[in-house]
């Protein structure tokens, strides 16, 4: 069987690489390589050698031009040393090869700003949505209940009943789209796979603090139409063991955290398809 290989990109302000790689390993990946962006730009590491790309949380370039904007610009224009290609071409080839990308928090912001989500009609380089300042104007670290759309094509959320409980940690998590049609398409195709909700996962909510940022339609995470590319503001890699839960000292919880399923599903998909 193929060795399932995950890549976690770091550098220029990425912060969650260690726990993301840890989650990949726990989820069943045979290898989880943390690569600095410099290693990609010098060609020491090539995306083609991996199946699962993690764009994880942090503050790329300090989010100085708006979250992940500078990195989106860098990935679009930077060329790989010694090869006649830009990094963005490696990424689009990665997508075309049927591989997987998970963007968490800053990684989600990056995917959206590069146009890779929602990527309606398979157009991966056209920005139609954004993530901007929380409605409250403040960074928030708090745990949220996320209702899962069972009809979503996302392969990451497969098998989740009701929803998942995960932490959000961001100042720019308010999801917005360019026009009503985009939103309609997102909803019609069930791409909005995660929504902020009440704790019983009965309904999406616009109420703070359950919805920490005021996202349109309470959207916390979306996927593309293939279900292989997904981005979300909450951090699944931050809940892979019960001791990470804010109430683990008072609730009877299973050993495994609820966020691990994202990585297990990814590993399983890779093993079944490559």
């Amino acid at each position: 069987m193929t060795k399932a290989k995950a890549l976690v990109i770091t550098g220029n302000g990425t912060n969650c690489e260690t726990e993301a790689a840890h989650a990949c390993k726990l989820g069943g990946f045979d290898e989880a390589r943390i690569a600095h962006i410099a290693e990609l730009l010098t060609g020491e590491v090539t995306l083609d050698d991996y199946h699962f790309l993690n764009l994880t949380g942090g503050f790329l370039d300090g989010d100085d031009l708006g979250s992940a904007k500078a990195q989106a610009n860098r990935l679009r224009y930077a060329t790989v040393e010694g090869k006649q290609e830009r990094l963005v071409e490696q990424i689009t080839r990665f997508i075309a090869d049927g591989k997987l990308i998970l963007g968490v928090c800053n990684g989600f912001q990056l995917l959206v700003k590069m146009g890779m989500l929602p990527a309606l009609g398979g157009n991966y380089l056209n920005q139609t949505a954004t993530l901007t300042y929380n409605e409250g104007g403040r960074f928030q670290d708090r745990w949220c209940y996320l209702k899962v759309d069972a009809a979503s094509p996302s392969l990451y959320t497969r098998g989740i009943e009701g929803g998942v409980y995960l932490p959000v940690r961001h100042g720019e998590g308010k999801f917005l789209v360019d026009d009503a049609k985009t939103l309609e398409m997102i909803e019609a195709k069930h791409l909005s796979c995660l929504k902020y909700s009440d704790k019983n996962y009965t309904a999406a909510t616009m109420e703070f603090p359950e919805n920490p940022n005021g996202s349109v339609n309470a959207i916390a995470g979306i996927c593309d139409e293939t279900g292989r590319i997904m981005g979300l503001m909450p951090h699944p890699e931050a809940f892979v063991h019960r001791t990470q839960h804010p109430r683990w000292t008072r609730e009877e919880l299973p050993e495994e955290g609820e966020g691990l399923i994202f990585f297990k599903n990814a590993a399983q998909y890779v093993k079944e398809n490559f």
Partner: peptide
């Protein structure tokens, strides 16, 4: 306190 990320790096046990 909520404005400070107290969980990044994934090791948070008592928050």
């Amino acid at each position: 306190v909520r404005r400070y990320d107290h969980e990044v790096q994934g090791g948070s046990v008592v928050k």
